[in-house]
Design a protein around this nucleic acid. Structure first.
Lengths: 340, 340
DNA sequence: ACCGCCATTGGAAACGTTTCCAATGTGGAC
DNA sequence: GTCCACATTGGAAACGTTTCCAATGGCGGT
């Protein structure tokens, strides 16, 4: 049993309960020999402190919440991994919540996290979850938005700046001979959905190319439907605006007997591992996931330190073209194996 | 601020603290009108109970730990999602820990979960983490093994039974003309690594075909190395024993100018979404992820109920062949869009 | 030698729930 | 009419830490 409490440790070490606590938590002054004696006793008794009791008194849980739309989305899985590592290295545990792109579920999770009294929350929000998030904000929980944001809430955010990458993508599609570019957009409830669409429109206008828009919801299925609709509208180039819709669009092409990136100029989104299997490889808009996750944790830490800010950090995304296909790069086939 | 406590709610409702608690938690008898009054008061005050305080007294956290090797592995991402959903529907929160296939990290997480006093833990273990897990077990935390197990620990487990699927895969490769089949194995620290290898050996022996083994570690990189080694050894058919190594093996083929499943008969592992993008599509050994995750949660619930068992549930995996490629099935190209 | 400061320690309060126990009231059975 | 069982409620203890406060002792400065 872990029925061992700090009281037992104190007795074993021959000190008072308060002293034992100071030795174990590292707060308050304590003589080195005493600390050693307590630590030894704790080790001997295989003592593991009760986090509930500690948090109750100290009002800090050393735990943060991570509220993402869907862990099955490889983009968010990778992001979750990065956040988790960063947090861990700061001594924070992460409670992961995957809301299935559903505002109601996001609301429920927000309550769970509030009940758990997490020290702070990193969230990729929908605008339709604004009320739930305001509630959290009102309860004093430090928030950081990641990947997406909700303008006007005064919450600091880490997002990608996709303007140039999308412009590059449009230029690339035009170079490939496209005159009528289809775009599969994300939902208007997300800033990524709205902004990327606006950036695409602007870029297309600058290039003087025709466009067709299919409205999607960042799920694979809508990628399929979007591509189906765009094909019916006779586009000769397509840009999908997230990884799952890229997968869906790709599948639909296949079902329609069209080879994306060969028969049909195509640019996908997010550099997730399995895309590297595709032959010929896909042009992709890549986000700097690692920096995003790490930055979000740092921002949250800043807030936990009592500093309130509403800074928005924008990290450049970029267009990544297939290595050898356009003969514009003489790079080796197998540069370095381990991607991390 | 969420400075509102149950005491405030009690005052607002004009009842004692104990009564308020009974009304809110649903334990103990309480008159319906009283309960309504308390609930109304709680709503009015926007009261969210402090989980730490409750757990401290009740010795239950309504939280379980999920300890998996790597959330970036789509197999585990999907599994995590299923577990999370099942747990949530039982009113349990999940604390997700991703150990990067590293026993030391698994040990650290085990301590974190113990400190958090989670009610139980679902874990996909390495045998090298046996000591950490014994410690958990010794502390009285209910455990369930998922995907992998450690024999002899008396911990209930949910695993795939891959014997028949692997035999089918070997037969398939032979049918494709293979005489010397390469196998990329998982690490010997996992039961999945050991058992699948044994099953492969047995199936190959039964088919009278030559084999070559490359030892991997369930990471993409080792899939590459494994495939490289196997190609050098002149195999004419390959089976990779998990999803990440399938990705690695696939990439290596590409780098070597060999088309897997065309030039080289190939069977991969796990039916993860992006594999569906491949053209021609890959024969895959598929596990019943959904049932596995749900069963693990149910098993853990049983244990939380005080029943100790060491039951091992084995769910059949199966070989899934490319739909039309072998002309053995006349199925539509696009059966149903939404996979969940 | 005396005083005061600081480091160290012990003791106890406090955190916000749940749950145990006792007190009260209400209804039915005899 | 009396008594018992039961439902409901109030009050208080308990959970295991952290942290505040006060007490002790040693040490250097004067």
């Amino acid at each position: 049993m872990s029925r061992t409490t700090i009281k037992d440790v104190a007795a074993e070490a021959g000190v008072s309960l308060g002293t034992a606590s100071r030795a174990l938590s590292g707060n308050g002054s304590i003589a080195a020999p005493t600390r050693e004696r307590v630590l030894a006793a704790a080790r001997r008794l295989n003592f593991v402190p009760n986090a509930q009791a500690g948090s109750l008194r100290s009002e800090r849980t050393r735990t943060i919440g991570l509220l993402i739309p869907d862990i099955r989305n490889p983009f968010f899985a990778e992001l979750a991994h990065v956040v988790e590592r960063s947090a861990r290295s700061e001594g924070l545990s992460v409670m992961l919540c995957s809301a299935d792109e559903d505002p109601q579920q996001m609301h429920d999770y927000a309550t769970v996290l509030r009940r758990q009294r997490v020290d702070g929350i990193i969230v990729a929000p929908f605008s339709t979850a604004r009320d739930s998030l305001r509630e959290l904000q009102g309860s004093g929980t430090p928030l950081v938005f990641l990947d997406r944001t909700i303008p006007g809430m005064g919450v600091p955010a880490v997002v990608s700046d996709t303007r140039d990458a999308i412009a590059d993508a449009v230029r690339y599609l035009v170079d490939q001979g496209a005159h009528r570019i289809g775009y599969i957009s994300g939902p208007s409830e997300t800033t990524t959905g709205v902004e990327r669409l606006a950036e695409f429109r602007a870029a297309a206008a600058a290039s003087g190319v025709d466009i067709e828009i299919a409205h999607g919801d960042f799920q694979e299925h809508s990628g399929r439907l979007g591509m189906r609709s765009l094909l019916a509208r006779g586009v000769d180039g397509v840009l999908a605006s997230d990884s799952l819709m890229t997968i869906g669009a790709f599948k639909e092409c296949r079902a329609a007997g069209v080879k994306p990136a060969q028969d049909l100029p195509f640019v996908g989104f997010d550099d997730i591992a399995p895309f590297a299997l595709l032959q010929p490889s896909l042009p992709l808009i890549c986000q700097d996931l690692h920096s995003m996750g790490a930055a979000a944790v740092q921002m949250l830490l800043t807030q936990l330190g009592g500093v309130t800010s509403s800074q928005e950090l924008r990290l450049e995304a970029h267009l990544k073209l297939p290595s050898g296909s356009e003969a514009d790069s003489a790079q080796p086939i197998d540069p370095h194996h381990h991607e991390s």
